Computed example of a mutant assay.
Amino acid sequence: MKTTNYYNTFIEVAEDCPVTTAEVPPLRGEKTIANIEFELLVDNPYEFTSDDVLFHVYAAKRQLRTKEFEKEREQFFSKGQACFRSSPLTKRYGWGAHFDADGRMAIYAVESEEYQQFARDKALRQIKAMRSKKL
């Protein structure tokens, strides 16, 4: 099974992120990937891994029943999945993602003191979110 989990890592917002202050992803009709990720992470810091969040989005978008989760999760991760560097939260909405030693994650607004502390922390692996536009 492939994984998207990070450990002791901080994902900074993308270099071409269009905001300097983090935004809550707007809700327009059906929930988007960004809406689902944001709600899950803002209400539950350090409760979920990246794999948990990505599968939750997949399950929510497909309206899977709980009894299908184990089989569907195994199938979902049998193929490589895009990691959290490609999340709209880190690319577009101005949220950095911190992963602790157990791979559990939390998000931080780009303008926050916590974000700045994580971005300067030499003990963490520092990576940037993927750019939206090619150079």
Rank of each mutant, 00 (worst) to 15 (best):
19 V>R: 09
99 F>K: 05
25 P>T: 13
25 P>Q: 08
5 N>Q: 11
66 T>I: 08
114 E>S: 09
64 L>S: 01
21 T>A: 02
4 T>A: 01
17 C>K: 06
63 Q>L: 11
14 A>E: 04
85 R>F: 00
1 M>Q: 03
34 A>E: 15
125 R>A: 03
4 T>N: 07
92 R>P: 04
119 A>M: 13
120 R>C: 10
16 D>L: 03
7 Y>A: 04
98 H>Y: 14
64 L>V: 04
77 F>W: 01
95 W>E: 09
61 K>W: 02
36 I>P: 01
85 R>E: 03
6 Y>R: 15
131 R>H: 14
43 D>G: 11
40 L>W: 07
87 S>D: 05
90 T>M: 07
119 A>D: 06
98 H>G: 02
70 E>I: 09
29 G>T: 14
94 G>K: 04
73 R>G: 00
87 S>T: 07
11 I>G: 02
101 A>R: 15
133 K>I: 13
132 S>T: 08
110 V>R: 02
97 A>D: 08
106 A>R: 12
90 T>D: 10
18 P>R: 13
133 K>Q: 14
88 P>Q: 08
120 R>S: 15
21 T>E: 05
116 Q>H: 11
90 T>E: 10
21 T>N: 00
76 F>L: 06
33 I>C: 14
80 G>C: 12
105 M>H: 00
10 F>M: 07
84 F>W: 15
83 C>R: 10
54 L>S: 03
29 G>I: 14
131 R>T: 11
39 E>S: 08
89 L>N: 06
72 E>L: 06
38 F>L: 06
47 E>I: 13
77 F>M: 04
3 T>Y: 03
88 P>D: 09
75 Q>A: 13
43 D>W: 14
118 F>M: 12
131 R>V: 06
129 A>P: 04
89 L>K: 05
70 E>C: 08
28 R>T: 07
113 E>H: 09
107 I>K: 03
62 R>M: 15
80 G>N: 14
123 A>P: 00
58 Y>P: 00
65 R>F: 05
93 Y>I: 10
25 P>Y: 10
7 Y>G: 04
21 T>Y: 01
